[in-house]
């Protein structure tokens, strides 16, 4: 990307949403547990390809990278993830309603 032509730098700013802060925390805690390194996360991000940069937000890409590394480290299986995501989705239609509280 370095040196490529591009338009003006957009300066819109948002404050981080709770789910984004949690992705950030999972990244730090998963790394502290020794399950991956920042290089492993970056590798997963790069392997998503150029289109992911256009189609996904920053923390969407990072949660995908954290998940990829945790799967590779054997922390949980794809089957467990699939079942858990189905459980979460069944709880409600919003991020707030889908929490296990």
């Amino acid at each position: 990307m370095g040196g490529d032509a591009a338009g003006p730098v957009p300066t819109d700013q948002h404050d981080f949403a709770l789910w984004e802060k949690r992705v950030d925390a999972l990244m730090i805690l998963g790394s502290a547990r020794g399950h991956f390194t920042v290089d492993g996360l970056r590798r997963a991000l790069e392997d998503m390809g150029e289109q992911a940069f256009e189609d996904m937000t920053y923390y969407e890409r990072w949660v995908a990278a954290v998940n990829q590394n945790l799967i590779e480290a054997g922390v949980y299986t794809l089957e467990e993830l699939g079942a858990k995501m189905a459980t979460v989705t069944a709880r409600g239609d919003t991020y707030g309603a889908a929490q296990d509280v």
Partner: peptide
């Protein structure tokens, strides 16, 4: 080296 760390 990140080139090995990236692949654990």
């Amino acid at each position: 080296s990140p080139e090995q760390r990236a692949y654990a």
